[in-house]
Design a protein around this nucleic acid. Structure first.
Ligand SMILES: [Mn+2]
Ligand SMILES: [Mn+2]
Ligand SMILES: [Zn+2]
Ligand SMILES: [Zn+2]
Lengths: 140, 140
DNA sequence: GCGGTGGTGACAGGGATTTTCACCACCATC
DNA sequence: GATGGTGGTGAAAATCCCTGTCACCACCGC
């Protein structure tokens, strides 16, 4: 692998560029949710020449392609994280931001049933659990 | 009841004012989620002298006091609705915005269990279901 | 290699919310 | 029923995240 790494996760219909590769690679290395601005800052810190606009656009494509999860903070800011492809939800630490991906057939069924009972179709849902993780409650 | 109605839902630690009463009363009369700006517009239409800033501040207090539910639209805008005091979630129509309050002990238990299994404490959660309501799917 | 077409990024909006700050109105007290 | 202190108000300015614009650039099929 040379210093000039080739774009990795190429997206259908989109051209492979150094910038998109950089965003994608960075997401691979991170565990928790980050805002577009944080990701941009980190990329600049690492010496990547990339504009904030491009980071925003790339994250949007990745979100549409289902390659990243998007959450909204209480303040309305969008935060992103590379996600595994199977459907899942998040358990997020309020203090340190650590997140755990969780699944639950029970919730899935419940959501579908409740929607059907009320005559709703084309159903989707968001489920997020918040709490204080073990580390953070130890420290207080 | 005179034309000069007294403030109704007084909040602890906060002074009772005509403006706060107006916001609270309007929320009582509405069924679905509205943005701060929509609420402000409606208040002005009704002849209430009230500033947008005050609407924002009042909604914040009400949200902190747990008297209104807050959701975020996809565009990041905050929308508010007076909520019943018991814990519940929402089933929201993507097209017309109609919302149904729903409950489910199954989800509650699931969320608590998942959090506990991962060592999280002080747990809360958000659950929203989205779909197309009967009215709206009929019209398409 | 060339050309066309998609991508980039500095900059200028947009839109929602928050901050500022001078003024105002509750309300406990005199 | 005046007065003073303090919380509340609101117009305007400032923020903040994000999206649109547009001149320029770089993939990539030929
Ligand atoms: Mn689910
Ligand atoms: Mn619940
Ligand atoms: Zn934590
Ligand atoms: Zn509908």
């Amino acid at each position: 692998m040379t210093a000039h790494e080739r774009p990795s996760a190429v997206m259908p219909g989109l051209r492979a560029t150094r910038q998109r590769a950089a965003v994608s690679n960075l997401l691979d290395q991170l565990d928790d949710f980050r805002s577009a601005q944080e990701l941009h800052e980190e990329l600049r810190r690492r010496g990547e020449g990339i504009g904030l606009t491009t980071v925003y656009r790339t994250l949007q494509s990745l979100a549409e392609a289902g390659e990243v999860d998007v959450l909204r903070t209480d303040s309305g800011e969008a935060i992103y994280r590379r996600c595994s492809s199977h459907h899942h939800h998040h358990l997020v630490c309020r203090v340190c931001g650590r997140t755990v991906e969780v699944e639950g057939p029970a919730v899935e069924r419940w959501a579908d049933r409740v929607a059907a009972e009320n005559g709703f179709s084309a159903v989707s849902h968001t489920v997020e659990i918040f709490g204080t993780c073990q580390n953070c409650s130890r420290q207080s």
